[in-house]
Amino acid sequence: MEEKDLYFTVNAVNMFHGIKPFKIGSLIKLVKEPENNYDSEAILVELRYAGPSGYVANSVKTVAKGTYSGGRLYDKILNVDYAQVKFIVDETIIAKVLSKNELEKEKENSDSDIHFMI
């Protein structure tokens, strides 16, 4: 059975480096932050060369239509998981969680940043 694609919105990028480090196809490391003082379902977004770069959106005001909020995504991913940027429109970044098979394909790709992120 095919897993449902999990798309989510990245926000809070201005707390870090802004939108500039994000490119379509960029690999993202997702790290759950259960000890986060503001949101117990916070999911940190990290980029290889930039480090911490944003959070998965978790507010009705910041989640793009048709994407998962951090709260809805939280129990569907591992404590550390991986995603890939699929769309960037203005200041909105939408990424897709990589399935186990997609992650394996990224590992096989010698040009992939995933080796350095795991």
Rank of each mutant, 00 (worst) to 15 (best):
residue 59 S to F: 02
residue 49 Y to L: 13
residue 105 K to M: 10
residue 101 N to K: 11
residue 28 I to M: 07
residue 89 V to G: 00
residue 79 N to D: 15
residue 72 R to W: 11
residue 110 S to H: 07
residue 15 M to H: 14
residue 29 K to Y: 00
residue 73 L to I: 05
residue 9 T to W: 04
residue 55 Y to H: 13
residue 116 F to L: 12
residue 78 L to C: 03
residue 45 V to Y: 02
residue 95 A to P: 02
residue 41 E to V: 14
residue 10 V to T: 04
residue 13 V to R: 10
residue 40 S to R: 15
residue 55 Y to D: 04
residue 100 K to A: 09
residue 79 N to Q: 09
residue 1 M to F: 08
residue 43 I to S: 06
residue 111 D to K: 09
residue 107 K to P: 00
residue 15 M to L: 12
residue 92 T to P: 03
residue 97 V to D: 02
residue 10 V to K: 01
residue 36 N to W: 01
residue 117 M to R: 03
residue 114 I to C: 02
residue 83 A to G: 11
residue 80 V to D: 05
residue 80 V to N: 06
residue 104 E to L: 08
residue 21 P to G: 09
residue 113 D to L: 14
residue 78 L to S: 13
residue 46 E to F: 00
residue 42 A to Q: 02
residue 40 S to A: 13
residue 30 L to K: 00
residue 11 N to A: 14
residue 51 G to R: 12
residue 8 F to L: 10
residue 77 I to T: 05
residue 114 I to S: 01
residue 2 E to V: 11
residue 87 F to Y: 15
residue 58 N to F: 03
residue 38 Y to V: 06
residue 61 K to I: 03
residue 69 S to P: 11
residue 19 I to Q: 08
residue 96 K to S: 06
residue 98 L to K: 02
residue 102 E to M: 02
residue 35 E to N: 13
residue 22 F to W: 08
residue 65 K to A: 15
residue 69 S to F: 11
residue 37 N to D: 11
residue 85 V to N: 03
residue 32 K to M: 07
residue 10 V to R: 01
residue 35 E to F: 10
residue 84 Q to F: 01
residue 5 D to Y: 01
residue 98 L to Y: 01
residue 9 T to L: 10
residue 82 Y to L: 03
residue 90 D to W: 00
residue 78 L to K: 14
residue 14 N to W: 12
residue 62 T to Q: 07
residue 26 S to T: 07
residue 54 G to V: 14
residue 87 F to L: 09
residue 2 E to F: 08
residue 69 S to H: 13
residue 61 K to N: 09
residue 97 V to G: 04
residue 47 L to Y: 05
residue 39 D to S: 09
residue 86 K to W: 02
residue 31 V to G: 01
residue 13 V to L: 07
residue 62 T to A: 14
residue 75 D to Y: 15
residue 63 V to I: 15
residue 73 L to R: 04
residue 49 Y to W: 10
residue 80 V to M: 09
residue 102 E to C: 00
residue 96 K to C: 09
residue 95 A to K: 01
residue 21 P to N: 08
residue 4 K to M: 09
residue 72 R to F: 14
residue 1 M to T: 12
residue 110 S to P: 01
residue 39 D to F: 05
residue 86 K to Q: 14
residue 52 P to T: 07
residue 30 L to C: 04
residue 107 K to M: 15
residue 1 M to G: 15
residue 65 K to V: 14
residue 60 V to L: 07
residue 6 L to S: 05
residue 59 S to C: 03
residue 27 L to E: 01
residue 51 G to T: 11
residue 45 V to R: 00
residue 64 A to R: 12
residue 35 E to K: 13
residue 21 P to F: 12
residue 8 F to N: 05
residue 97 V to I: 10
residue 97 V to Q: 02
residue 66 G to Y: 09
residue 113 D to F: 10
residue 67 T to N: 10
residue 80 V to A: 06
residue 13 V to N: 07
residue 77 I to Q: 04
residue 106 E to V: 00
residue 53 S to C: 15
residue 91 E to N: 14
residue 37 N to M: 12
residue 69 S to R: 12
residue 30 L to G: 04
residue 67 T to C: 15
residue 68 Y to G: 06
residue 61 K to C: 01
residue 104 E to G: 00
residue 31 V to A: 05
residue 47 L to D: 05
residue 67 T to S: 11
residue 32 K to L: 09
